[in-house]
Amino acid sequence: MVENRPFLTVLRHVVLLAGVAIVLFPVWVAFVASTHPQPTLLSGVAPLWPGDRLVENYSQLLSAGMAQAGGTPVGLMLFNSFVMALLIATGKIAVSLISAFAIVYFRFPFRMIAFWIIFLTLMLPVEVRILPTFEVVADLGMLNSYAGLTIPLIASATATFLFRQFYLTVPDQLAEAARMDGAGPMRFFFDILVPLSRTNIAAIFVIMFLFGWNQYLWPLLVTTDESFTTIVMGIYRMVNVSDEQPQWHLVMATATLALLPPVAVVLVMQRLFVKGLVETEK
Rank of each mutant, 00 (worst) to 15 (best):
256 T>D: 11
9 T>Q: 15
158 T>S: 11
91 G>R: 00
265 V>K: 05
171 P>Y: 02
213 W>E: 00
236 Y>S: 13
61 L>H: 03
27 V>T: 05
251 V>K: 06
30 A>M: 11
175 A>E: 11
231 I>G: 04
147 A>F: 07
122 L>W: 12
67 A>V: 13
172 D>I: 13
194 V>D: 08
235 I>Y: 00
185 P>R: 15
196 L>P: 04
75 G>W: 00
199 T>G: 12
254 T>N: 07
117 I>S: 09
58 Y>Q: 03
76 L>C: 05
91 G>L: 04
163 F>Q: 07
153 L>C: 09
32 V>P: 01
75 G>A: 12
37 P>S: 09
94 A>Y: 06
215 Q>P: 02
185 P>A: 15
84 M>H: 07
221 L>W: 01
249 H>K: 06
190 F>L: 15
171 P>N: 04
151 I>T: 09
255 A>K: 07
31 F>N: 03
58 Y>H: 01
95 V>N: 00
269 M>F: 07
109 P>A: 10
98 I>F: 04
180 M>N: 13
273 F>S: 02
203 A>I: 09
153 L>E: 01
26 P>Q: 04
93 I>W: 02
95 V>A: 05
25 F>S: 12
26 P>I: 01
276 G>Q: 07
228 F>H: 03
163 F>M: 04
83 V>P: 01
270 Q>G: 04
50 P>Y: 02
17 L>C: 08
117 I>N: 08
262 P>Y: 06
235 I>A: 07
99 S>P: 03
15 V>Q: 09
11 L>E: 13
208 M>Q: 15
5 R>M: 15
208 M>S: 15
170 V>F: 10
61 L>K: 05
58 Y>F: 00
102 A>P: 06
179 R>K: 14
175 A>M: 12
280 T>F: 08
243 D>Y: 12
270 Q>W: 02
71 G>W: 03
198 R>G: 14
168 L>V: 14
182 G>M: 03
256 T>G: 11
25 F>D: 03
91 G>T: 00
274 V>G: 04
214 N>P: 10
50 P>L: 03
86 L>F: 05
127 E>I: 12
66 M>W: 01
264 A>P: 04
223 T>S: 02
213 W>A: 05
129 R>Y: 13
258 A>G: 05
267 L>T: 10
217 L>F: 11
279 E>V: 02
10 V>R: 11
132 P>H: 09
61 L>P: 00
243 D>V: 10
123 M>L: 14
9 T>M: 15
3 E>N: 14
214 N>M: 13
162 L>Y: 08
258 A>F: 01
165 Q>R: 15
106 F>Y: 10
77 M>F: 06
88 I>L: 06
157 A>T: 08
44 G>P: 07
254 T>I: 02
282 K>P: 14
278 V>H: 03
164 R>M: 12
176 E>K: 14
118 I>P: 09
173 Q>S: 15
190 F>Q: 15
86 L>R: 01
139 D>C: 10
195 P>D: 13
206 V>H: 07
145 S>L: 04
55 V>E: 13
1 M>S: 15
213 W>G: 07
233 M>W: 00
16 L>Q: 14
104 V>I: 10
16 L>V: 13
